[in-house]
Amino acid sequence: MRLIPKDVESLWTLFTAPTVWALHFLACYVTAAVFCAKAGVAPFSFEAMRLALGVVTLVALSGIVLSAYLAWRQWGFGSGDPPHDEPTRKDRLLFQGFATLLLSGLSFVAVVFGAVPLLFIGACQP
């Protein structure tokens, strides 16, 4: 038995990884913006916020990796080459898997990009 069925019959799985990127981006931006706007009010330090957002980043990245794994599986672990343009359900599924895998890759890079400021910026207005 599989936890997640192998062939998810939905268009929406395509958007999983970019949605994780969007949530991660929002979490970072909103947290930092509110923290900096309410300077001194928050009961934790900038360092603690960075650390927390670092954890959020790891969670987001693992979500994307999971989405990528499922996509890779749907793509048959790369058993067939693109372009997946046959008029069959199988090719449609392979296409979805491949496109989702590519989007997971892009989202992974974009989340890493988004997390770089957390590494290098140590205060609201350095």
Partner: peptide
């Protein structure tokens, strides 16, 4: 805040 700017610069 510059950290906010940095997030958008990265994206």
């Amino acid at each position: 805040p510059q950290i906010s700017l940095a997030f958008f610069s990265a994206a």
